[in-house]
Amino acid sequence: MDISILPPELIRIVISAVIIIAFVFLNAMVLGYAERKLAGYIMRRPGPMEVGPQGILQLMIDGVKLIGKQLIVPKESGHALFRIAPLLAFIPVGLAFVVIPFSDKLQARDLDVGLVFMLAIMSVNVVAVLVAGWSSNNKYSLFGAIRSVAQNVAYEIPMLLSLLSVVLMANTLSLKGIVLAQHPVWYVVCQPLAFIIYFVAGLAETNRAPFDLPEAESELTAGFHTEYSGMSFSLFILAEYTNMFFVCSIAVVLFLGGWSGIPLPFYAYSGGIWFLLKVYALLFVMIWVRWTYPRVRFDQLLNFCWKYLIPFSLVNLMLTAILVKLWPVVF
């Protein structure tokens, strides 16, 4: 078939969808391997060693295993919703890639509300978790889902407030505009508190330790995805790893100067390389935190959010607003 009769935009969409899905899987593989290897080193054991040199092919084998596994649907579950939930978690994940500015030119669409777009996409994840937990018809799943939703709804507030103070300084919601606005000084320097609050809230948003109560394996077996097996389980894991990537890329775009950095030897690609380097450095911190801190209790989790993070982010936002108004030249 002659594809030249098709509109070029359509071909671009198809190709970028393929690239995005490939990237989602690749990212999950890299992160999964990094997580297991780092967990190993932190616990003073070698981690996966058997498949390939240093166990580097372990995740590929795991993927094949998960694809080959049977999808078990519990008899008493809500069938349709039970099957839809993993898709609901996975599909929005691809959408957020539309606005991520990987580098100066490597961005699909520079929406003027890019930041809101990413946050909206990430908020759909809560619905997926709730549907999964409810339709499994299992008390562990339901408890996991309730915890996850309570935690996500609470931590979304400090997250948005801390991002808002950056938006006030940059004067735009477009991700590209925010990167360009922090040309001489990265916002992590002027907004250290907002950065810390955002990162903590981001850990909670992605259900990562020490806030991994929704899937606390010692009390809830596996939380909301207890009943899922095979690929429907791995869709949840893929969504989780991709959401981690999003949280870190928002942090990089808003606080760490996006793609900017010292030009590298491959000049044309140096922006993208810097961006990915920064994102994976933050992801490394996320994994590091997970294997270092014990899980918090649920009341501690909510108290920490409502009594510390939200007041601090509100104060930070007000201070930023006042300073931006008083010295518009400096900020």
Binding site: D112, V116, F117, I121, S123, V124, V126, V127, L130, W134
Partner: peptide
């Protein structure tokens, strides 16, 4: 797009969750 994003963020991400709760 702004209105669309707000619709997703508020109605789908928050109001439906509150109703489910």
């Amino acid at each position: 797009p702004f209105l669309a994003m707000m619709q997703v963020l508020i109605y789908v991400g928050a109001v439906c969750i509150i109703i489910a709760f």
